[in-house]
């Protein structure tokens, strides 16, 4: 080792801390997911039993479908609306910076605080939304936003979109800033309609921003549990029980640590799959360009 660069030693503090407090617990978590550990006494090996339960027990399959619907709705609307806002703001330099900041304000509240505010706004009596609907003469649209199991999940997802749409907008705007103005001007002069320019020029060139946004939104929805925890506790009738919340409740209330670990492992797999699909899809896109 004559040419060993001593700077490599500088990696050690970070690497050791990461291995000890992040990777080691993670590995232990994977092995815990194969047991029925409940906090006290010895953990009994149960093999893949926890995973079987998750995919067979209706209580858990509901959690999986809820999480999928919640994630899908948030990813689509947060990024769809964010992209639309960014497309408009990119053409409006006069108000761009002001609105980018304004739209980011909700994401600076904490999930806990936003959850409390919206739980009040959604309240059936005296809550902001139903009162507002009554005031503008749309009483027939009044709903029990968080108490009706057919809409509760969407009500919660709406808060998520509200909170983070500004974040997506900011990232898309940064993507727009990276697109050469010559290219967009050339298309405009050639008489390409704004909508076609958006579809065939902006969207392909915004690909990196789209990946970042979709990845961030996916991870964000998967691990967040604060909204359903504060607003509904997973109810009514488990309609808003998401993966993050279920893990949280398994850890803090039901003390089924093996089960919680199994759900967490599935969550990691879900994130890994989304990241991989995106990566390969984007690679092939970039190759075609």
């Amino acid at each position: 080792m004559t040419n060993f660069d001593r700077r490599m030693l500088f990696i050690l503090p970070a690497l050791l801390l990461y291995l000890t407090f992040s990777i080691y617990p993670l590995m232990k978590g994977v092995s815990l997911s194969l047991t029925d550990f409940s906090g006290v006494g010895e953990a009994t090996w149960v093999g893949l039993e926890n995973y079987k339960t998750i995919f067979a027990d209706a209580k858990y399959t509901k959690v999986l479908t809820n999480t999928f619907i919640y994630g899908f709705v948030v990813v689509v609307f947060q990024n769809g609306i964010g992209l639309m806002f960014a497309a408009f703001l990119n053409e409006l330099p006069g108000v761009r910076n002001f609105l980018r900041t304004a739209l980011l304000v909700p994401s600076m509240l904490s999930l806990v605080i936003a959850g409390y505010i919206w739980q009040y706004l959604y309240a059936p009596m005296g809550g902001g939304i139903n009162e507002l609907l009554a005031m503008i003469g749309l009483s027939n649209l009044q709903s029990v936003w968080l108490g009706d199991s057919s809409i509760a999940l969407f009500s919660v997802a709406g808060v998520h979109v509200w909170m983070f749409v500004g974040y997506s907008t900011a990232i898309f705007l940064a993507g727009y800033a990276g697109i050469s103005t010559e290219l967009r001007d050339a298309a405009r002069i050639d008489g390409v309609s704004p909508f076609k320019r958006f579809l065939h020029l902006d969207i392909p060139l915004l690909a990196p921003a789209i990946t970042v946004n979709i990845t961030l939104a996916t991870i964000g929805t998967l691990k967040s549990f604060e909204f359903p925890y504060i607003m509904t506790l997973g109810g009514p009738d488990n309609a808003t029980m998401t993966m993050g919340l279920k893990i949280f409740l398994l850890l803090f209330q039901e003390f089924k640590f093996g089960m919680a670990a199994a759900l967490s492992v599935l969550m990691i797999l879900a994130v890994a799959i989304v990241a991989m699909v995106q990566n390969s899809y984007l690679r092939s896109r970039e190759d075609r360009l």
């Binding site: 990461y18 407090f21 992040s22 080691y24 617990p25 978590g29 815990l32 919680a260 994130v271």
Partner: peptide, 17 residues
């Protein structure tokens, strides 16, 4: 890679540790 690992999985072992 740690950027995309949701923090729940290692939580119980971390607590015991």
């Amino acid at each position: 890679l740690g950027l995309v690992i949701p923090p729940f999985a290692g939580l119980t072992p971390l607590y015991l540790f």
